[in-house]
Amino acid sequence: MTAHWEHFPHEADVGVRGIGATPEQAFEQAALAMTAVIADPATITPTQAVAIEAEAPDMELLLVDWLNALVYEMATRKLLFSRFEVHIDGQVLRGRAWGEPADAAKHQPAVEVKGATYTALRVAQNPDGEWVAQCVVDV
């Protein structure tokens, strides 16, 4: 199985879902799915890296924290990200995101993400062994 991402429908907003062989891969893919809500990830060149840390008492809250940390970095640094790396150790996530400054002409961003939510929030291993990390993001 190759790690991948998808969107799922929510009435007003968008669901993001990452799928991978490990929780880390699923988290990385969920981040890519969130980027795709904003713009086409293929248009974003990963030229600069930002270190991200998140901490939460369980894996589901950790997913939301990870995505919200990315929302914060995008908003304050005016960046868009297209490559992610995640390491999870207990309640602590250490990661990196690579991207470039948002450019309306180049990236044609459709909408900004206000925050990742607890709606349809799930981090779990399916019976076939693959990990799924998902939630709805508010736009």
Binding site: A56, D65, N68, V71, A75, K114, G115, A116, Y118
Partner: peptide
Amino acid sequence: RGLGHQIGTEFLKKMAI
């Protein structure tokens, strides 16, 4: 704008815990 979004995000977690 961003201020309200960040407050919503932070207090949701605080209240959930």
